[in-house]
Design a protein around this nucleic acid. Sequence first.
DNA 1: TAACAAGGTTAGCGCTCATTAACCGCCGGC
DNA 2: GCCGGCGGTTAATGAGCGCTAACCTTGTTA
Lengths: 184, 184
Amino acid sequence: MSVVRSRREQILDVAAQLFARHGFHGVSIADLGAAVGVSGPALYRHFPGKEALLAELLVGISEHLLAGGRERAAASEDPREVLAALVEFQAAFALREPELIVVQDRDLANLPTAARRRVRRLQRTYVEIWVDTLRRIHPALTVESARVAAHAAFGLLNSTPHTARTPDTAALLRRMALAALDDL
Amino acid sequence: MSVVRSRREQILDVAAQLFARHGFHGVSIADLGAAVGVSGPALYRHFPGKEALLAELLVGISEHLLAGGRERAAASEDPREVLAALVEFQAAFALREPELIVVQDRDLANLPTAARRRVRRLQRTYVEIWVDTLRRIHPALTVESARVAAHAAFGLLNSTPHTARTPDTAALLRRMALAALDDL
DNA sequence: TAACAAGGTTAGCGCTCATTAACCGCCGGC
DNA sequence: GCCGGCGGTTAATGAGCGCTAACCTTGTTA
């Protein structure tokens, strides 16, 4: 975490923000260049194209989430502890990077097919960690219902882009998510 | 609810589906025309432009939700009954019209300023119904926290576009939402 | 010191797209 | 039986965009 970020990281950062605010198609290469202080085609020195830039963002997010999920799942035998850790992890990410949350589910469709498949696969695997954990806690739960519940929890936690972030928001969201997932 | 819908309604319908799948900028006027069986500029006989079409969709959604919310809020003195009715209403809408859910929060930014303000205002008023109801149930809750909780509940209920809709999904989502909103 | 790679620049190409123009057939009411 | 408007059509226009080309500067290195 150095203070001087490479141009590459800088571009990814402002791309996340602009894509979040205006959508992938609502941001031009020229806009992106302007936002980092260079103009237009300079970006091609760092990325092969606009879609590749989006791909790197989205693949990065999914890999980060999956890695974090695996880590939490491996950290305990008790599925309730795992669930609490997963909720905490997802809430922290959603609060730290609300723009990425927005871009991830809004602009998936704009990825080239290969990258889209890759992201989908990573996401699915991440969801399955939640599904497995939920079913260990509630053995009567079907896979389908557990999946619905997991997505509902994501929706709840990922609501951060729509709200002001007050100091106790994290705790509130965690508590709500755990309550929702408790009486399945 | 006639079987023969006017061309106008038909256009709005397919626009909702295409916008949901590909995003506002990902759908051309020609695509839209083709999807209703006419081609391209014929749409200008029914709408002054592409943005006006989006505006009609989004304003329609917000008005529908606000009207439904007001109705539920006026139907009972007991805030817990009101909350249950609100949850049921939002869940039913999210399950019936997942495409509209997607378009509503994805393409708000593509509205012309006037319409965007209008939609924002309607949405805010709808949220305030939830906030007031929550605070009547939990008097210690601050306005900000109630707002966070309301948006979290929307996120949970509006997760329908991400999941297969099995027969008991509605009940599951309602139960989760009420559980999340109960121990605030 | 000469060469080169890295990272900029501006100009321009080709394409897509929203919108407008100009034209046309049909059909209901005077 | 005419005629006006409603709802279509195709062609054209003009803007914006992604991307490539050609060129330049600078710092590093053999």
